[in-house]
Amino acid sequence: MPECLRADGLAYAVAGRHLVEDIDLTIEPGRIHAIVGPNGAGKSTLLRLLSGELTPSRGGVRYGGEPIGAIPPWRLAVMRAVMPQAQRLAFPFSAAQLARIGLDGIGRGLSRRARDAIVDDSLRRADADHLAHQAYPTLSGGEQARVQFARALCQLAAGRTLAMQQVLFLDEPTASLDLRHQTALLDVAAELAATGTAIVAILHDLNLAAAYADTLVVMQAGRIVARGTPATVMRDELVAAVFGVPWRVGQVQEGGRPFILPRKTASARS
């Protein structure tokens, strides 16, 4: 099985408490990996370990067989991009300037024309081209998220000229997006996956995860408790055990993708 990113026996502890442990994970090119799990399950910590932001207290991460600690930051930036959770910015960068920061470092070998084209294309794919000249701090949360997505796309596009294998990390990318932009963003991620990019996304919406993921990674209390295709992983017992809700998993006819409907908890019934 091809792999571009591999974690072996990964653990991360702060002040003696393990935030994640015993993580063995293979990220495969061309596939969307959705990480799901309740709050505090260690999803974000795992993402930060995989992207190289945190150094694990045990175990290690390898990109294409190379230990991540041995890869200098600029080369890592060519191989993977990260779309962070929404964040504030105190300086009035325009959306286009902010997206351009994504390729400033690794796109230095490109012509100005090529860089302009990448910025325009990324903003368009993130449906943020009409925001290009607006100041980032004045945008709404969802608009800011799309600009950050455009920045990650810029970085991938610039890095693609240098790296064979790329990974895109998305940390709750749909959290502040409306329904149309949620699917639009994940559609772009799926397009990238179709061209060979590996996608690793933390998602809270199990239905989005089930609809888009090739591999569902379920985390609980710092460990991976299940992984596989959504159809094999999303079962009534697992949802009850991991998320603590007694909801039934249904199945959409086309493609047999599972879905789940919220239900009012019995004890809350009046």
């Binding site: 930060r48 992207s51 190289g52 932001e53 200098p72 930051p73 600029w74 080369r75 890592l76 930036a77 060519v78 993977r80 991009a81 990260v82 962070p84 964040q87 910015l89 105190a90 300086f91 960068f93 902010l98 920061i101 994504g102 400033d104 470092g105 690794i106 970085q155």
Partner: peptide, 21 residues
């Protein structure tokens, strides 16, 4: 200049962008 532009986004983001923060 380039490093500071990235740093303004946050230290983690600057690292993601390839800056030795």
């Amino acid at each position: 200049g380039r490093g500071l532009n990235a740093l303004v986004l946050g230290e983690a983001e600057a690292f993601h962008l390839g800056i030795a923060v």
